[in-house]
Design a protein around this nucleic acid. Structure first.
Lengths: 246, 246
DNA sequence: CGGGGCCATATTGTACACAATCCAGACAAA
DNA sequence: TTTGTCTGGATTGTGTACAATATGGCCCCG
């Protein structure tokens, strides 16, 4: 499974984190903090605080917060503001369950649509991942480098599925901080298995066999879920509202 | 299929369209206009215009617009603003394809989890729909009354699936104006078939047979897609950017 | 007569000030 | 001790002014 560092931000603002565009800067800064686990779940994010820290006014900060709420990073209550969202065991299970459906669907469709160039790209990404994985056996801190090519691999499969609504939908269940940085939890065997899964997915797609591709993708995601559960969520607790608070 | 008048708004603001809360009023007003097809696809929505018409300032209007962008009603470009989103044939097909996956998944899971009370509710809703359908045979304009119980039926199934992330995800592919008000396109036979589907889904769930329930749900949505295609999308054209413009 | 660059205008983006609302703690009464 | 109320401070919600940017028409040039 795996599926870290989500691709571009799903909505507008095409990666314009330049100097101008206070809203984009605010969004990037807050998202960065969320991905770094700067704040514990349930922590209240104060607009004025963030605005001062980032160096913009409250208005673009509000825009950024609303966006992060819609992406599932934060939860919002009227007149109270935003809190860092936590994920209960149940919700994490639900999240992986949906990934199971959506990514296997993507693989099934991709098998009927991907072309030779796409297959080649997937295998190139496999080469990269395997090279990194070999080094990472000794240096566990290198494992985060796997996330970029792994993410690219999954993204290529999703693109090949040729369903324009699918990518943002999958992003909504993979952008969660809980899912990110999953490679760290993998042991050597699990990394090897993950690499094999990628190769097998590429093979199934090359063979044009959608059911095969979907089945391997399901295995891939199941394996990731097990690894995540074993390692603990790192974030099971919630705010005062309990696991499903809103 | 069908699935009109999406339930509550997916995110925060629990239906507070009261007198206060300018942002909620703005959201409700604009959404209402979108559902009424007040503006053609590609129409640019001006913040100042809307603010004046609704009687609030631009700030809450901006909030409302951002929200509608995230819900797929509008598309947004930096420094340009919001346009009414159109749906190409491809996108509508993609949309139904995802509903096929998600709602059949919901039905499959619901079969293992729904209780007797839930089944009873579903059958009650079937009763209601059949009563309305009988009258609507002569008065086609009554068909819109089917949308509320139909929506409730689907919602009950989704709730029974007990995946807290599923409902907002399905909402994102059913809130689109293209999908709403689908019953109008149905002829008498199609309405009858739809009613039969509902009864059969309830039976499959009562039998605890997830595969059966999922299969009927797929049939149900396929049928809806065919009816929609036959009737035309009512909104195939797009703005100047072509069908996938952004 | 057609095409490219420039400027006026319209519209969005940002900042800030004020109003509305909520929360924590103190205090009083049972 | 417990509960209810009230008040002060803090935080979000809204309105408005101004800055930044894009669009469309005009003029100039080829």
């Amino acid at each position: 499974m795996l599926r870290p560092s989500a691709h571009k931000d799903p909505e507008g603002a095409e990666e314009e984190v330049k100097h101008g565009h206070a809203a984009s800067r605010a969004y990037a800064a807050i998202r960065e903090g969320l991905l770094r686990d700067t704040w514990a779940s349930g922590t209240r994010l104060l607009e004025a605080d963030l605005a001062a820290r980032i160096g913009v006014s409250r208005t673009p900060v509000r825009d950024a917060l609303r966006r992060l709420v819609n992406e599932g990073f934060l939860e919002y209550s009227a007149n109270i503001g935003c809190r860092v969202r936590g994920w209960s065991e149940d919700e994490i299970a639900s999240l992986f369950d949906l990934r199971l459906e959506l990514e296997s669907y993507a693989a099934r469709r991709a098998a009927e649509r991907i072309d030779a160039a796409g297959i080649a790209e997937l295998n190139t990404l496999c080469d990269q991942m395997e090279a990194i994985a070999t080094e990472a056996l000794d240096a566990p801190n290198l494992r985060d480098d796997l996330t970029a090519p792994n993410d690219a691999f999954h993204m290529r499969v999703i693109e090949a599925a040729a369903n324009p609504l699918l990518a943002p939908m999958i992003a909504s269940v993979t952008a969660a901080p809980v899912v990110l940085r999953t490679f760290r939890r993998y042991d050597a065997d699990e990394i090897a298995r993950s690499m094999n899964h990628h190769r097998e997915i590429a093979a199934a797609l090359a063979a044009g066999n959608g059911e095969w591709a979907a089945a391997v993708m399901r295995s891939h995601i199941h394996a990731g879920y097990v690894a995540m559960r074993r390692g603990g969520t790192g974030d099971a607790a919630r705010g005062p509202n309990g696991p499903h608070g809103r």
